[in-house]
Amino acid sequence: MELKQLASFVAVADRLSFVRAAEALHLSQPALSAQIHQLEQDLGVRLLERNRRVVKLTDAGAVFLLEARDLLARAQAAGDRARKAAQGEIGRLRIAFVFSAALEVVPQIVADFRNQHPGVRLDLVNLRTVNQVQGLLDGSLDIGFLRLPTTHPQLNITIIHSEPFAAILPPGHRLAAEAHFALEMLRDEAFVSYGREWAPGYFDATMRMCAQAGFSPHVVQETSEMYTAIALTAVGVGVAIVPRSVLLAHSHKVEVRQLPESLGVSEIGVATRAAEPSKLVQAFVDLARSHRSQEDAVL
Rank of each mutant, 00 (worst) to 15 (best):
V12T: 03
D142K: 05
G201D: 06
L16V: 09
A101K: 02
A34F: 00
I90G: 06
E23A: 13
L16P: 00
P164E: 11
H291V: 07
R196A: 14
L72T: 02
L39A: 04
I36W: 00
V235Y: 14
A271T: 04
P200Y: 06
P153T: 05
V242N: 04
R121D: 14
V256E: 10
N131V: 10
S262R: 15
V237M: 13
G264D: 03
A7F: 03
M1Q: 01
R74S: 14
S100Q: 05
G119R: 13
V110K: 01
L148F: 10
A86W: 07
Q221H: 11
Q132G: 00
Q154I: 05
V219Y: 03
L122Y: 04
R244F: 11
V246Q: 02
L122R: 11
V192I: 14
E225V: 06
L16T: 11
L43K: 04
K4H: 13
S140C: 09
A101E: 05
R50D: 03
R128P: 00
L280T: 04
A73G: 05
A21S: 03
L124I: 09
V10M: 03
A111C: 12
R74H: 11
R92N: 13
P30M: 01
E189L: 13
T129K: 05
P30Y: 08
L175Q: 04
E89S: 10
L93D: 05
F284C: 04
A11T: 02
H26F: 01
S266P: 04
G61P: 02
T151S: 15
A85S: 14
Q212E: 15
G79Q: 12
D14F: 06
P170S: 12
A85Q: 14
Y202S: 08
